[in-house]
């Protein structure tokens, strides 16, 4: 049984159909990459799956639990966590406080208002653990907004990991990165697949072909093709879509 199944997702903006009956599945332990030219509807799809946008139709099931009607935060609690294409960290806070905030969401109630958070050793341990996982343990006291782009992206991933997700949604994790940072991110994602299945939205074809077990191609809001890397590479329609826009080796 698939870990994650999205069935016939639909999203309309006025007359425009941004997501047109999209169906996707992710198997346990799998990295499923979602590619497609700009404007194909990738971001909309990520927002539908994560619940930040309400869908007009379709269903989403993760590990046997129906998520379709759930709010975004409830989906996270059921194991669907995401990062953002435009780095979304708490820029004015230290890396440590960023991590603490993420960890706090998943251990105990955030309505507690009498105890100082700084006295909760358990939270701090979890935060440190996360920092180790993405390699940020030397930067705990740095202010997030002052860090280099690549480091901020790692922090963004760490924030998503705090939920101990079953499925991790990575929205263009390599966006705006140089080759060195990209390679580091590829290595990080390769390590993360041991912990969670991954739905990877990415423009960087090198990364996609290195990491993905399966690839789906989105165009004009529809799934154009879906299959393993070899299948996608040889697919004539996919080649047509990408001809001249992006290189598909």
């Amino acid at each position: 049984m698939s870990l994650f199944v999205a069935q016939d997702l639909v999203k309309r903006f006025g007359g425009l159909v941004a997501t047109d009956r999209v169906s996707l599945s992710v198997e346990p332990g799998e990295v499923h990459a979602l590619i497609g030219p700009n404007g194909a509807g990738k971001s909309t799809l990520v927002n539908l799956i994560s619940g930040l946008l309400p869908a007009d139709g379709g269903s989403i099931v993760l590990d046997g639990v129906e998520l379709t009607a759930m709010s975004a935060h409830d989906r996270v609690r059921h194991g669907l966590s995401r990062c953002f294409q435009i780095t979304s960290v708490f820029r004015g806070d230290s890396v440590r406080d960023n991590l603490l905030l993420a960890v706090q969401a998943h251990s105990g109630s955030s309505f507690r208002c009498f105890r100082r958070r700084s006295t909760e050793a358990g939270l701090r341990e979890r935060a440190l653990e996360l920092a180790h996982k993405v390699g940020l343990e030397d930067m705990l006291d740095r202010v997030a907004g002052t860090l280099p782009h690549g480091v901020q992206r790692k922090l963004d991933v760490a924030l998503a990991l705090a939920a101990r997700p079953k499925l991790l949604l990575l929205d263009e994790p390599m966006a705006g990165m140089g080759p060195e940072d990209s390679q580091q991110m590829v290595e990080l994602i390769a390590r993360l697949r041991a912990e969670a299945a991954i739905l990877l939205i990415e423009h960087d074809m090198d990364a996609v072909f290195q990491l993905a077990d399966r690839i789906s191609v989105l165009d004009y809001g529809k799934v154009l093709a879906s299959g393993d890397t070899a299948y996608i590479r040889e697919h004539p329609e996919v080649q047509a879509v990408y001809l001249g826009t992006e290189e598909l080796r």
């Binding site: 820029r91 969401a105 998503a160």
Partner: peptide, 14 residues
Amino acid sequence: RDNETRMEALGYPV
């Protein structure tokens, strides 16, 4: 206050 969307995506009942 600083980033409502991110908080929702972290699992907070904003």
